[in-house]
């Protein structure tokens, strides 16, 4: 217990206490306690719209990440440990790069005069693709950010699978596709769900990516918090938005904890 003290003090002083202040600010106005900030979130179309955008972008980015990440994780899981260790570096390289740097790199890649469009124009003669300052831009940037997290989560679940099940299926005459469909994939389902929830949690609070790669129609809740903190100086509404964001994220984290515990999915085999 005594060894927990430093971490506990750190979290209480620098995380929990400020969080309580945010919570308090969201419930107070010029005249004392008020629900006005929360009522504004419900009464103005702005907030519902941005919440919807946030959800849309999170879900699309999560699905794309799983679609791209699963084959990579599967491939890595099938390598011998030494080869896998080498290949994982390629997954971790973008993971170690700051999201700010990555987002700026994407503006150079995806712009009208960017590398992608220049290639399409010069090599294929295809007209300019609008990939920056819109939804595709945000989804590309975000999927790129989420991939390492998902791949590592999926990889853990795939590597820890007992190969005995696969071998049994093989002995019983199942082909590679059938083994994947009936054994490997179902066994990795908790990993897929954990990866998806992790993506949803991480993308919920995205700020840099929509700000740098998105257009006005792609702003997410965090950007709206920023707007209220810096532009309108309405910290009450900014706090209320943050509280809503925290509650939504907490729900997903609770779900994640259940999946990780293996209670929600997988079931008895």
């Amino acid at each position: 217990m005594i060894f927990l003290a430093p971490g506990l003090i750190f979290m209480v002083a620098l995380f929990l206490a400020p969080l309580m202040i945010v919570f308090y600010t969201s419930l107070t106005g010029d005249t004392g306690f008020t629900a006005a900030h929360y009522l504004e979130l419900v009464s103005r179309p702005l907030y519902g719209r941005v919440m919807t955008t946030t959800l849309e972008i999170s879900v699309v980015a999560t699905l794309l990440t799983l679609l791209i990440g699963y084959p990579v994780a599967y491939h890595l899981a099938m390598q011998n440990p030494r080869r896998r260790a080498v290949l994982i570096v390629f997954v971790l390289l973008p993971f170690w790069t700051s999201i700010l740097v990555k987002s700026f790199a994407f503006t150079a890649l995806l712009g009208t005069n960017g590398i992608v469009n220049a290639f399409l124009r010069d090599a294929l003669g295809v007209g300019g693709l609008k990939l920056l300052f819109n939804r595709p831009g945000v989804v590309i940037g975000m999927t790129h950010y989420l991939l390492p997290f998902t791949i590592l989560t999926l990889l853990t679940s795939l590597v820890t699978q007992d190969p005995v099940y696969r071998r049994a299926a093989e002995i019983m005459g199942a082909g590679p596709w059938r083994i994947f469909r009936t054994v490997t994939f179902p066994l990795s389902a908790p990993g897929v769900v954990a990866g998806a929830l992790l993506c949803l949690i991480l993308s919920r609070g995205m700020f840099v990516t929509p700000a740098l790669l998105g257009g006005r129609g792609d702003i997410m809740v965090s950007n709206l918090v920023d707007f209220h903190v810096r532009q309108t100086l309405d910290w009450g509404v900014a706090s209320a938005l943050s509280v809503v964001l925290i509650v939504l994220t907490a729900v997903f984290i609770l779900l994640l904890a259940r999946v990780r515990g293996g209670q929600a999915l997988g079931g008895p085999i």
């Binding site: 103005r44 179309p45 702005l46 719209r49 941005v50 006005r216 129609g217 309108t232």
Partner: peptide, 15 residues
């Protein structure tokens, strides 16, 4: 007037 109009303008941009 700035705060109210900033919010209205933001709404206008998003619709």
């Amino acid at each position: 007037r700035l705060v109210e109009l900033e919010k209205r303008f933001m709404e206008w941009q998003l619709v």
